[in-house]
Simulated scan of single mutants.
Amino acid sequence: MSKLLIKAVDGIGHIANITPESAGWTYVGFDLHRLEAGQSLCGKTEDKEVCLVFVTGKGNVTANGEDLGLLGKRMSPFDGKPWSVYLPEGSDWSISAETGVELAVCSAPSLNGGLPVRVISPDDLGQETRGKGTNTRYVTNILPENEPADSLLVVEVITPGGHTSSYPPHKHDQDNLPAESYLEETYYHRFNPPQGFGFQRVYTDDRSLDEAMAIEDGDVVMVPKGYHPCAACHGYDLYYLNVMAGPKRTWKFHNAAEHEWLTKL
């Protein structure tokens, strides 16, 4: 099995834990927690900034002693836009689940600090359609570069069954602005219906890295470098939550030269 693929785990608890140390990189951290109704979870951001994303479910959230109220609404990641919370470095947070909750904890180094805690409601989120034909997918920008943060970029994407995504193949592994930015990235995958599957390939031009992975509901893929397209099989819509971070907070990507012609279709 590919070292870039973290397979899904059933049950309740701390389901996924990716740190810069475990991933062998510098910036991105990703954790996934599943709570039953009535369970609680707490954490500290320490020297990182964090974006809590309600993938599913509802819970009462506090941050630095402030009651942020009951957040979350959707019971499926395929049903509308998410609720999220931005937390700067040095923050304490907790959640008490009112329903079953799947909570993503997205983290990256805090570079400047000083930003306030803020709730990001579905009404705050921009959406866009990318691609054409069977390359069409639907993007929800949770923490885009035009919203305040130090390092984090967070986005959700829905890819209909039979469609490709993160395609034409693109990469962002060079700190070479304005042409390209260096961003590490994680993909958290869900399928509807959940028995579905798809494929993701992570590869470099020289093929020194070339991993093709079957992805299933709940899998996480790490992208340290290279191109990283994915495809949803017919009949099964694909959701993924992307977390990106790097030395400069901007998304500038480079398309694979041999596939650039696809952008002209």
Rank of each mutant, 00 (worst) to 15 (best):
N60L: 14
G113M: 06
I158D: 04
R118P: 00
P82G: 08
Y240M: 02
H14I: 03
E98L: 15
S40C: 12
E102K: 10
P178V: 11
T186H: 03
T129H: 01
R74Y: 10
V202K: 00
S151N: 05
V155R: 15
T99F: 11
L4T: 01
L87H: 07
T159G: 02
Q200I: 05
N176M: 11
I120M: 10
V85W: 07
I158V: 15
L52I: 07
I215S: 02
K225C: 11
T26G: 01
I215N: 01
T136D: 03
G29A: 13
G114D: 07
M222H: 10
L52D: 03
F199A: 13
K48T: 14
V61W: 04
G57N: 07
D210M: 00
S22Y: 05
L68M: 12
D217G: 04
L125C: 12
N242Y: 02
R34W: 04
G226R: 01
Y182W: 13
V55D: 10
E128T: 12
F78Y: 08
F199P: 00
G90K: 08
I142G: 06
N135H: 13
A23Q: 05
K73Y: 13
N192P: 01
V155L: 13
W25P: 00
V221E: 00
T263D: 14
Y240R: 01
K81P: 06
M222S: 03
K48V: 06
I120E: 02
W25H: 12
D205C: 01
Y239W: 13
G196N: 08
C42A: 15
N112Y: 15
D92Q: 14
M1E: 08
S121F: 03
P20C: 08
G57A: 12
A256H: 02
G114M: 09
G196M: 09
K171N: 02
S94H: 05
F253T: 10
D219S: 11
D67I: 06
V9C: 05
T136L: 08
P194W: 05
F54I: 06
F197E: 15
N141V: 06
K7F: 00
S166V: 13
D210L: 00
W93A: 04
L115M: 14
K252D: 07
V61H: 03
G38A: 08
E216C: 13
P168W: 04
P122C: 12
T263W: 10
D47T: 15
S76H: 08
V55S: 03
P148D: 11
P77C: 10
I142F: 14
R130Y: 11
D173C: 05
H259G: 07
Y187E: 02
E211Q: 11
C51G: 07
L70P: 00
P77A: 09
G38P: 09
D175F: 09
Y203W: 08
V105L: 14
M1S: 13
E21V: 13
H259I: 00
F191T: 02
K264L: 14
V243G: 01
M222V: 14
E147G: 00
I120T: 03
A108P: 00
L143G: 00
S91Q: 06
K58Y: 02
V221Q: 02
G72M: 12
G161D: 07
E185K: 13
K171M: 12
N112T: 15
Q174E: 15
C233I: 04
R130N: 10
